[in-house]
Simulated scan of single mutants.
Amino acid sequence: MDDENEGGRDWLEAELADTLDEDYEIELEDAQLSMKIREIYREAHVETLPRGEYFHSLLRLQAELIKLQDWIVHTGEKAVIIFEGRDSAGKGGVIKRITQRLNPRVVRTVALPAPSDREKTQWYFQRYVPHLPAGGEIVLFDRSWYNRAGVERVMGFADEDQVEDFFRDVPEFERMLVRSGIRLVKYWFSVTDEEQQMRFLMRIHDPLKQWKLSPMDLQSRVRWEDYTKAKEEMFARTNIPEAPWYIVPGNDKKRARLNCIDHLLTLFPYEEVPQEEIELPERVYNSDYERATLPPELYVPSKY
């Protein structure tokens, strides 16, 4: 029995090590920077959280997210969480940490491309509606219908009449969602001009991140002030009691992720739900069964 307990502890320690390795792999997204850019970035973030403290807090919050997920399924609640912000503000990073340990059948991310020619002729909100949650689901929008108030307006893809229609319609659209039983949460990730410039430089110098840069992203640097004015009007006209905006200071990526997840958890009256005790059934052995030998070409080569 002692040997079994010891083996169980060894297995659990190995599993925990794998979990931390997975977190480290995600964190290594910043490790491919040129040494000069890394040095400049570190100088600008001298008070960042120690890695151990960050991982400890993240794992604790992710455990709470699992409880939230179970409560959503158990109660049949519906949730939509919108993540907006300037390019490189950290939306994708927090979404990755939220979904990392959750069931993708319950929690899914929606990141729509630019509208097609057909979609441009539809009611503006129409292409978002099919992605709204059913009971027991959480949908995370990595950018949302607020594209019209931001990039579409600033870059000239929507004229002022269309923008005005949007501002008139969106509060009622969101009130309709809330009346239908959807819990709607809206986050804006805020970074300074200097921080965005630093993150864009990091992407330019990191071959693993260059795919994140688009001509639209580069134009957002040129039009920083236009985006600021658009953001301010968006807050003024769409910050409604039924669906208020929450601003996440994002210059420190790790703190932004932890603060956002912690705040998100406070918005739901979730609690632990009863779980059926799981027992592993005994495997059935058939004495006349003989496992077939498969040809070696079916196997992936063991290079590592």
Rank of each mutant, 00 (worst) to 15 (best):
R9A: 04
P296W: 01
D10I: 12
A14G: 08
H205T: 11
R199P: 11
G181I: 01
A149H: 01
W211D: 05
V73D: 12
R9T: 03
Y299G: 06
P133T: 08
Q62A: 04
F125M: 10
R9F: 03
Y24W: 13
N286R: 15
W188Q: 05
A111H: 07
A134Q: 13
V178F: 12
I240S: 13
P296D: 06
D217A: 03
K96F: 00
N239Y: 02
Y270G: 11
M176I: 06
R175S: 07
A114H: 11
E53R: 04
P171V: 04
E174T: 00
I204R: 15
Q210W: 08
R143I: 07
P207M: 14
E13M: 08
R237K: 15
R179M: 07
Q162T: 04
D206H: 14
V129D: 05
K78T: 08
D10F: 13
D262S: 14
R105D: 00
D226E: 15
R221C: 03
M176K: 02
L218A: 03
P207G: 15
E297S: 06
G76Q: 12
Q100N: 10
G93P: 09
I95Y: 00
Y304P: 15
R183P: 14
K212H: 04
T238M: 03
L280G: 02
D165N: 10
I240M: 11
S88T: 14
